[in-house]
Simulated scan of single mutants.
Amino acid sequence: MNVRFGALGVAGVLLLAAPVWASAAVSNGSVASVRQQVESSMLVGGDVHIEQDGTVSGVVLRQEEKLPEGVVKLVRDTALQWRFEPIVVDGRTVKAIAPMSLRVVARKVEGGSYEVSLRGVSFQKSETTDPHAVTAMEMAPPRYPELAYQSGATGDVYLLVKVGSDGKVEDAFAEQVNLTFLSREADQRRFREVLAKSAVSAAKRWTFRVPTAGEEATQPYWNVRVPVSYAIQLAGGSQRPETYGRWRSYVAGPRERAPWRSESQEAGSAPDTLAEGGVYMADRNTGPRLLTPLQGG
């Protein structure tokens, strides 16, 4: 299910700034051509109420009052069409309430309006005390790369981290880097590499608590996903304002697969639906299984 918004319904989606050194000439690889790749999105959180037969009886959106009316309608109308694999506890089907994180994406179309659709969904939450899950111990944030900071380069790096049985990181990989500034295509590639290298370097020094209960405790290693955001502080040292319920513009980078992962392991995964600041198990299905298409219908 896609919906159309007028330009005012997606106010501010194209507010990405271009560094002063970037050329604005309209040519292949120029700032102008990169601008055409810009999309805007927001993460919408909430809960879905699942009946014993797997149908959805209700949707509760987090801070609904902060969300655009059209987004609320799109998410609620779509989610009510979903059907899940029935949830079984102790041999019988039960009702359940599952956490939900959705990425809603807006792209400009002909006529100046915006097409809004759902890109991905996660029914997983970040665990902090679950003995079946990998949880954080020491996760010092990466230092902002000087070149990126001086150039005003900002963005989000979506990491896949391989955690060994001793809780130390065996490997880390940037699955995707979305940049929240405009520049020439060559500079976009350069700064994706700069931010990815910085995030991966920091991740390799992190430590985690590994699972101590259940089947997960016997694994030789675990994969977790960690979103990392690079945002320059505002004047006076304050952080960027709360963005929940507001469109955020970016140039989406290509999705890459970690060398130790197979295509089948990555099927259906959507790293950019995970909220910043959490640690998410990549292979442990802690959420319900959606049987119908994400977009409904």
Rank of each mutant, 00 (worst) to 15 (best):
261 R>A: 11
242 E>Y: 11
175 E>Y: 06
78 T>Q: 06
31 V>G: 07
174 A>W: 01
80 L>Y: 05
34 V>G: 00
149 Y>A: 14
112 G>T: 06
252 A>I: 03
271 P>T: 10
79 A>S: 15
136 A>G: 06
146 E>G: 05
53 D>Q: 05
97 I>Q: 15
40 S>G: 13
244 Y>K: 10
184 R>W: 05
32 A>W: 00
25 A>W: 09
282 A>G: 08
91 G>P: 04
186 A>T: 13
72 V>W: 00
143 R>V: 12
121 V>D: 01
93 T>M: 13
106 A>T: 02
175 E>H: 07
147 L>M: 12
157 V>H: 03
127 E>D: 12
23 S>W: 07
134 V>S: 03
288 P>G: 06
31 V>Q: 04
127 E>I: 01
24 A>C: 11
296 G>A: 08
247 W>C: 00
246 R>V: 11
185 E>A: 15
277 G>P: 05
229 S>W: 05
188 Q>Y: 03
37 Q>P: 01
240 R>K: 14
175 E>K: 08
283 D>C: 04
271 P>F: 08
132 H>G: 00
197 K>D: 14
23 S>N: 12
76 R>F: 05
250 Y>D: 11
170 E>R: 14
129 T>D: 12
260 W>E: 10
240 R>F: 05
258 A>G: 09
49 H>D: 13
261 R>T: 15
216 E>G: 04
292 T>W: 08
110 E>D: 14
197 K>I: 07
242 E>S: 12
14 L>W: 10
39 E>H: 10
148 A>M: 04
281 M>D: 15
6 G>C: 14
72 V>S: 09
293 P>G: 05
135 T>G: 03
152 G>L: 07
150 Q>R: 15
131 P>D: 06
74 L>S: 07
74 L>D: 06
173 F>Q: 01
46 G>D: 02
122 S>K: 02
159 L>N: 02
206 W>E: 00
30 S>F: 01
109 V>G: 07
134 V>Y: 01
80 L>Q: 11
77 D>L: 10
64 E>C: 02
150 Q>P: 00
250 Y>L: 11
101 S>K: 10
67 L>Q: 06
294 L>N: 04
